[in-house]
Amino acid sequence: MTTLPQTTDKKLGLVIDLDTCVGCHACVVSCKGWNTENYGAPLSDQDAYGSDPTGTFLNRVHSYEVQPETGPAQLIHFPKSCLHCEDAPCVTVCPTGASYKRQEDGIVLVNEDACIGCGLCAWACPYGAREMDAAAGVMKKCTLCVDRIYNENLPEVDRVPSCVRTCPAGARHFGDLGDENSDVSKLVAERGGMDLMPEQGTKPVNKYLPPRPKDVEPEFDILAPYLEPVAQDQKGFLGWLDKALEKI
């Protein structure tokens, strides 16, 4: 059913720390690796080793330059995947019921057996989170690694989305954003987590932590007094030379 649930028991999602992300794209690779060989149709590539390679990815890392009014420009790496919106426009436009939002945890999924590949959901998503697989003709999107997070065959430490497990910088966090006492919710509250394109009215579950303000350089160096030259006047030959040259 492509009508959205009124409420979901949990709001599972990601918190992405833009201050910490180093833009290594490890999450992109691990996402593709896990999701091409587990749930649903593989994430195909076309002309992978040719002159015009393309392929399906569920997670991509952009990089942006931000130039403040004063001070140096900042480079911010920006991973982007499905935000599992509370008011997901991709779900309601689906004509077949293939797209749905789970009532129990809020994950937005595609039932690939019912997807006709019309592409309308990708059009309804402002974030570019959905990509049609050119080989399978069905819509692919982030599943929040639904086949990992509840998978009791995996060690407990691995029961998080692949991107979170992989991130070497610890820039990605997974949890229940509907529970205000969860670690991710506390992180969002503490760091001022934000929504992407809030004006689109999608109410994304995933949050982005803005870069922390840069340290401001103090007007004087607190170590300066200790670093001042001890000998103010040169003595000996160099002192004589200095004075002699000064007089010329």
């Binding site: 992109v28 392929g55 952009h62 330059e65 931000v66 009014e69 900042q74 920006f78 990708a122």
Partner: peptide, 22 residues
């Protein structure tokens, strides 16, 4: 789109991929 607009002028510095995509 990036949530970074209040910090300054945002410019797409590097796309996620050099090729095309869907």
């Amino acid at each position: 789109a990036t949530g970074l607009g209040l910090r300054g002028a945002v410019r797409a510095f590097e796309p996620p991929h050099t090729g095309n995509n869907y």
